[in-house]
Design a protein around this nucleic acid. Structure first.
Length: 570
RNA sequence: GGGCCCUUAGCUCAACGGUCAGAGCAGACCGCUCAUAACGGUUUGGUUGCAGGUUCGAAUCCUGCAGGGCCUACCA
């Protein structure tokens, strides 16, 4: 038995996430968490909402709410959406928690003690109308290079030039549109990342298990040379900046940058979990307190990789304390909506809460992971979703369970028949299950989600092949023993299929196993050479046929959803 | 501007210098009738974006071109 610490990139508090966000970090982490638990390992799966930063303040203002109240509300919304998708977090925390506040302040003070922090004055755009400093992307103006009138503060979308917002002509606030803006000096804490350059590179060099995507992104940053990075902002909402435990002089109206405190919340959320459950957080995070044997896996979209491979490790390593660092990192590309971007404003794409209004979470879990964007961006299409749900879940798996349990109920009096001697069909299907289970287990262990889903499906399909060969509906006319063997084997297969499906489809799996009367102790992840692989039911025990597991998606539904969510390439 | 990635069957994707480029779905034909008109078998379908090059051998490596995408540190 091993120990696995799993974290999903923190979803930002600003509104409900779309299916792409779900597929790129939370869902795969949940699949892996469930798989490792089924193997009998000790798992701690942590996530949280990322609540600080300018967008949260603006969203709260737009909603006419205090930021903290807004975050309270949105945290609840996201938590419920996660529950709707059966995300099995051990804890779903909040980066605005007291635990994260003190941890963030602690790390900053450690970094300062190590000589890695420096106060520095910079020039920022201040909007009098909005009463706040404006992040680069919230300043608009005329591009000094090409004259484009709607250039962003950091980059001109017309000519591609990288800009400094103080160089924009006719600058205005993107928030209010006001041109009443000025350049002000402001002091911030800078993290002297170049001092950590070689330590980070050595650490990345050693991380040979990371996927190519993650390493190439990390090396790009390192090759370009790490830069000093401001880790404070002129905002009201966030973690206050301290020095020696007291408010830091000159920083009374500043807070830490959201990207500084957000990853620290992985630890903070674990402390929140410990506070709530009596668990021992240090055993998971401090290598001097038992975390040495923990395997830590992070799940994230590719936009997050640099922060997890470079920025956060600078914080951790720079502290000089024995914190656990990531061991394996699983990064995903994007799920696109018909090849384009999900967009709230243009009403393109389905968001988590909307998806749950249409169908239960499992339908989405299956499609998103069977088509996980592991090697490249992947297009979500309603037609593909319909095809996958109907073919894989309704026809191949759901119908298999339905046909064998209903036949058994009608012809075997709803009691598990006693198996006769195995024939060719039984020997063959058992060998197929052992071989497939070995592949499937390896795919899960390597976090190859597409391959895991494909192999799961292939095993379900092999069940239908078996039934075609055994044909108990024919055998029962002439050979009662052969029919009993066919039904028994079919029921055993149904139980096995539900178990291997459980990481993807936990709720329907439980329904199947309950209907078949499989004991809780027989629901773990099986070993391919388990002598009782197809022998977990009890002779003569009653079983029932579960209700239809997955309903087919009709063409009319697809047409309606396409209308509502902007389906099809436009 | 700089860097990285992608383009393979109608659709979504595999194949990562070596047997006829594969799978699922969709399509066609046959079979079964236990089952959600589900299932099984067979099968059609590709000048691997385009043009060159390296190699005994290229989807795979190199160069150029076309189209699409991502990152570029103050959005998170």
């Amino acid at each position: 038995m091993a120990r696995f610490l799993l974290t999903s990139a923190l979803p930002y508090i600003n509104g409900i996430k779309h299916l792409g966000n779900l597929a790129g970090s939370m869902l795969p982490a949940d699949i892996h968490a469930r798989f490792r638990r089924m193997q009998g390992h000790e798992v701690l799966y942590i996530c949280a909402t990322d609540e600080h930063g300018t967008p949260a303040e603006l969203a709260a203002a737009e909603a006419g709410m205090e930021v903290s109240a807004y975050c309270d509300q949105q945290h609840g919304v996201q938590k419920r959406a996660g529950e709707g998708f059966a995300l099995s977090f051990d804890w779903f925390g909040r980066s605005s928690s007291a635990r994260n506040r003190s941890l963030t302040q602690h790390f900053a003070e450690r970094l300062e003690a190590a000589g890695l922090l420096e106060e520095r004055t910079s020039r920022q755009v201040y909007s009098n109308a909005d009463g706040r400093f404006l992040p680069d992307r919230y300043v608009e103006g005329t591009c000094p290079v090409c004259g484009f009138e709607r250039a962003r503060g950091d980059q001109c979308d017309n000519c591609g030039s990288l800009l400094d917002p103080v160089d924009l002509k006719n600058p205005r606030s993107k928030i209010s549109g006001s041109t009443d803006v000025e350049i002000r000096d402001t002091v911030h804490l800078f993290l002297r990342q170049p001092l950590m350059q070689e330590r980070i590179r050595a650490w990345v060099d050693a991380a040979t298990e990371w996927p190519a995507l993650a390493r190439s992104i990390a090396y790009k940053w390192l090759d370009e040379g790490l830069q000093d990075r401001a880790i404070t902002r002129d905002l009201a909402w966030g973690v206050p900046v301290t020095k020696g435990g007291a408010p830091r002089p000159g920083f009374e109206n500043k807070v830490f940058y959201v990207w500084f405190d957000a990853p620290i919340e992985y630890i903070g959320a674990t402390q929140e979990w410990a506070d709530a459950t009596g668990g021992d957080w240090a055993r998971w995070w401090r290598t001097d307190q038992g975390a040495g044997d923990v395997t830590y896996v992070q799940f994230m979209g590719k936009d997050n990789v640099a922060f997890h491979t470079v920025s956060f490790p600078v914080t951790i390593l720079g502290s000089g304390e024995p914190w656990k660092l990531v061991d394996r990192l699983k990064a995903f590309n994007w799920v696109t909506w018909y090849g384009g971007k999900f967009s709230t404003s243009e009403k393109r794409g389905i968001f988590m809460d909307q998806a749950l209004d249409l169908l239960p979470g499992e339908y989405w879990r299956w499609y998103l992971m069977a088509n996980a964007p592991e090697s490249a961006d992947t297009a979500f299409t309603l037609e593909g979703f319909q095809a996958a749900v109907n073919a894989d879940l309704a026809n191949v798996y759901g119908n298999f369970v339905n046909r064998i349990t209903r036949f058994g109920q009608g012809r075997m009096e709803g009691r598990v028949p006693v198996r006769g001697p195995a024939g060719d069909a039984e020997t063959e299907v058992l060998a197929r299950m052992r071989a497939g289970l070995a592949d499937l287990t390896r795919h899960h262990e390597q976090m190859e989600f597409r391959k895991a889903a494909a192999e799961t499906r292939a095993l379900w399909a092999a069940g239908n092949e078996y039934l075609q060969k055994a044909a108990p509906w024919t055998a029962i006319k002439t050979d009662a023993a052969a029919a009993a063997t066919g039904v028994r084997t079919g029921l055993e297969l149904a139980a096995l299929f539900a178990i291997i499906a459980a990481p993807f489809l936990p709720e329907s799996s439980a329904r199947v196993l309950d209907a078949l009367g499989v004991a809780q102790g027989r629901r773990g992840w099986p070993s391919p050479d388990d002598p009782a692989l197809l022998d977990r039911l009890v002779d003569g025990a009653p079983f029932s046929a579960p209700d239809v597991l997955f309903a087919r998606i009709e063409d009319s539904q697809v047409a309606e959803w396409a209308q509502r969510f902007g389906g099809g390439p436009d």
